[in-house]
Amino acid sequence: MRHLITATVNGRERELSVKSSQTLLDVLRDDLRLKGTHEGCSVGVCGSCTVLVDGKPVSSCLMLASNAEGRDVLTIESLARDGNLDPVQQAFLDRQAFQCGFCTPGMIMAVKGLLNENPKPDEAEVRDYLSGNICRCGTYVEVMAAIEDLTAKPQ
């Protein structure tokens, strides 16, 4: 069974025909070929599939695509504008807050979500919010430093 939905993906309104059993992640990767969103666990634990829906981070691997109807979906590909990185991406670069990079797009989107909800998080709030985004390579110290850079700067 298919569903015709309208959703805004990375700023562009799209009519999408999605299968009942497709997740948002499936649609992003397989249909829209937005491969920057990764699949690590498929069960909501790792966070490598994190995207923003109406500004809030979700595990796209567990969200039915049909529920994107009328929503605003942002993936990692939406961040850089005219060849300029988003401040969060830049802060990750400055702090070298990645190794293999597989968790990185999800981590960056989660940080976007965090700063949407709480522009000046303290360390405990950062840990609490991001603890569901798993980085096996070990970059938590640098991610925290990147966020510190971002929040220390006057906006």
């Binding site: 920057g36 590909e77 991406q89 990750f92 070298q96 990645f98 990079g101 990185t104």
Partner: peptide
């Protein structure tokens, strides 16, 4: 770095 933070790194 750029490929990894921009999501363009191809796995």
């Amino acid at each position: 770095g750029n490929a990894k933070v921009s999501g363009s790194a191809q796995y």
